[in-house]
Nucleic acid binder design. Structure first.
Lengths: 224, 224
DNA sequence: AGCCGCTTGTGAACGCAGGAACAAAGTCCC
DNA sequence: GGGACTTTGTTCCTGCGTTCACAAGCGGCT
């Protein structure tokens, strides 16, 4: 019962996570089976693409019927590695960091923040949820003690690389970076970047491109 | 001097936004010219890819010299449509919404929140930064009055679609969605999705895949 | 038991993004 | 003024992701 260690495309993995969320909702609603079409619709993707994504983990549906909601959910949980709660540390307790520390969407999906860090003395000692903000100096010790494998960086850009280095050296293998700088990490450490202002700027571009001439008329073409 | 309305790939637009940020930093530091190699390094991309991205907006560098920092910055500002501040509204003032409302990275990059909305009476009236949280009922009026063209949704998943519909009907043309549901919007309205828990789950998958057997050795191969 | 309809899983084509190598062009130096 | 070096802009190519379309398999009905 090996979980198919063959390479699964990263884009597919991202969608698998979405499928898992939809399946969880369906399971809570009492559904026992789903078709690829319905699941794809709920996830906002193409049915054929969904089937191809699922094919990466071997046959897991029944032809003529669909997918067993519970079984597929468990399968995805195992493949994604969120079966047991994963310990995360969060560095940089500003506005964004505080929000993430309190964000319910993480805890209910197999992720648990085990420590919060900040460099500012005024932040240290504050409680967020049921965690206390700790001094950055304790980072290595806490990471080692808790065995945290994921680090989230919400610090200012200037110190992000330094924090990244320390996290990697302490044994963290995955880093989610919200600071607007590209991070260099040693081999064996994955870094994913979320850049909020870039998202807005892409929207701004798409929005302005759509209106090359007129810029004041409120005529909005309607269509499904 | 039309700004090349020819289609620019979305992936390129996202990188242009990154280049713009780097250029702004360089300009503040007094630099007058940059080479593609240096700029690419700072942005974390391939030099050839950077030149290809820039080629979408016509020749804007000088061979043998590089790019003029100020000129390229202004060019990108114009192309991305962030020259004049764009009015944004934010709906859903929970932890994440509050953080975004206060996030300095937006205001300094051509985006300005002009209104915050929430459905909860306990939130309405609160001040965040220099804005007051308003009732969701005022959404249409405020969007019309301010001419906001961008909406940010940080509500619970259940009401996200309804908020999306109302924003679109009120004239918002671009929506940034943090709620974990796919949104359907009328034609002419762009929707971009940011799913934080998906990002973490992708990291979890990559992390577990990398360690199929050993799980404790701190041997970290160094590289770049 | 046999047939039919439904759904999955897979194979192939299309389009796009990414990377490397090459030619054009401008500047600096002699 | 001429040559050589530097750096851009472009072209080609490879690989990946996405989509469409078909064959295989299973349940339900007669």
């Amino acid at each position: 019962m090996q979980p198919r260690p063959r390479s699964i495309p990263e884009a597919t993995v991202a969608r698998l996570a979405v499928y898992l969320r939809v399946l969880t909702t369906l399971a809570d609603g009492g559904r026992s089976t789903v078709s690829s079409g319905e699941l794809a619709s709920a996830a906002g993707v193409n049915p054929a693409g969904l089937r191809k994504d699922l094919s990466h983990l071997g046959p897991c549906g029944v032809r003529g019927v669909g997918y067993d909601v519970g079984a597929l959910r468990d399968r995805l949980t195992g493949v994604l590695g969120v079966g047991s709660a994963r310990a995360c540390v969060l560095v940089g307790i500003g506005n964004l960091g505080s929000a993430l520390a309190d964000y319910a969407g993480f805890g209910t999906r197999g992720f648990e923040f085990v420590a919060l860090f900040d460099a500012s003395p005024t932040r240290i000692g504050q409680r967020i949820g049921d965690l206390e903000v700790r001094a950055l100096d304790d980072l290595e010790d806490v990471v080692t003690a808790t065995g945290a494998s994921i680090g989230v960086i919400t610090t200012p850009a200037e110190v992000a690389q330094s924090v990244c280095d320390r996290l990697a050296a302490a044994g963290v293998r995955s880093i989610l970076n919200f600071a607007p700088v590209p991070l260099a990490a040693p081999a064996g450490v994955d870094v994913r970047k979320v850049d909020l202002s870039v998202e807005l700027q892409v929207l701004a571009f798409l929005g302005q491109q759509r209106v090359p001439a007129a810029a004041g008329t409120a005529s909005v073409g309607e269509s499904a």
